[in-house]
Design a protein around this nucleic acid. Structure first.
Lengths: 234, 234
DNA sequence: CGTAGATTTGAGTTCTGTCAAATTTTGTGG
DNA sequence: CCACAAAATTTGACAGAACTCAAATCTACG
């Protein structure tokens, strides 16, 4: 996982429209023409697509530093990104402008290529998780992802953000919301997770125990474990 | 869907290692370092990852013109591409070489960006299909994809390639092989599909009827319907 | 023509989805 | 700070879709 935030932000600073968002605010990912790019600056976002019958499917959780180009979700009409955290910040750009910058700056070009490969890797892993694992394993996978991305050591163990509702989790993991609830209850009674003092947060006694509950934990670790914490460059 | 084959092939001609493959031949997608890129030239390939318990998950069917960079499947150890057709041809390159060429040739750079967005779009749609649709709808989705990509009008209807075994289909659609068999039998008795004279081919009376059986058919059409047939440039 | 491998199909099981009722949490105003 | 209403979550009972296992059938190929 490369941290694109530092490298990319400086180049984009002039071209970008800054957007401060509140929880549950949606921003469209319109396909071409007028293709847009979002750079996530702060907070967690969800990349969503509408599904038949008033449902959604959440393709990925987006973290600060992620760059998403609307063409990457092109065939899926109505795709958007949704703020999951209480507040977030994203920068909106035109793809044409991003591309022009990339042509001038080789470092930026590399970061964009890597960032797009990273999105593909994330989608691939997510596909493997929802396609090949049981409900319990999928929920464990999501907890591991959020623990690796946002976890902090506290007195009650590794505490991490859980800004998704039961319905969000269900749409992310291709499960039913009731089933998610059942699985979470089971994990609570097994001692795998515990309610944190802070709202929207969970705590886990031992990340290793969570990882034991998910066969794809090594892949999650390779993708989400950050060698360094992202630093806001501007 | 942009046709990258023409544009990309000419640039890559000197750098590429040409590989002629037979059915079921596997080529590794090794992660960095020594990152590789494959350009599909002829035949259908499957992008696979190993799953716990001797299974595989097929992430995508690859068609001529597709470019796949091993980093796009980075966290998933053991990923490979598998020849699905009787014979195929792929070109293997170093990512560093591809990137160097892209820096010199703006058209190539655009094609690479679009090709990577296309892969992401394919993974996203596939994720939506396996996550949100019933078994019957998933099988219909795969038939629509192959019909749009390889279909040809014949006296017995639209005939298309079906180079995947039951197990391949199951691994692509996140179903059990037995279930795939049951669904295919049902579609045959409903007249949706018929065995073609040629082996490894199926025929469908009406693509519209297939599309009625799959809620995500419009997205499949947007992604896979080719405005022009790919032309081999070299 | 016979064998090895793949596919089909049946019977029974399991996991997840559906629906509804009970409970908890959240937000608002006194 | 408390009370209340609205929303979200939990949980039980049941139904249904898909999985597992095994036997029968078909196909490819020597």
């Amino acid at each position: 996982m490369k941290n694109t935030l530092d490298v990319v932000s400086q180049q984009f600073e002039r071209q970008a429209v800054r957007i401060a968002t509140r929880k549950r605010q949606s921003h469209p990912l319109a396909p071409q023409p007028n293709e847009t790019v979002y750079l996530i600056r702060k907070g967690l976002f969800l990349a969503r697509i509408p599904m038949p019958g008033d449902q959604h499917h959440i393709l990925s959780i987006l973290y600060p530093g992620d760059v998403i180009r609307s063409n990457a979700l092109r065939p899926l009409e109505g795709a958007d990104i949704l703020t999951a955290s209480e507040t977030g910040e994203a920068w909106r750009l035109r793809w044409s402008a991003v591309e022009a910058l990339a042509r001038e700056d080789h470092g930026l070009e590399c970061q964009l290529f890597d960032s797009m490969a990273d999105l593909a890797a994330r989608l691939a892993l997510h596909s493997a998780i929802t396609a090949g694992l049981t409900g319990d394993e999928r929920v464990a996978a999501m907890m591991i992802e959020l623990a690796l991305r946002t976890g902090k050591e506290t007195h009650s163990g590794l505490t991490f953000e859980m800004p998704l509702s039961r319905i969000d989790i269900a749409e992310y993991l291709a499960l039913n919301a009731d089933t998610v609830s059942r699985i979470a209850s089971r994990m609570r009674s097994n001692g795998l997770i515990a309610q944190s003092s802070a709202r929207d947060h969970l705590a886990c006694r031992s990340l290793a125990a969570l990882e034991d509950a998910c066969p794809l934990a090594p892949a999650l670790r390779r993708l989400h474990a950050a060698p360094v914490q992202p630093q806001l460059a501007i």
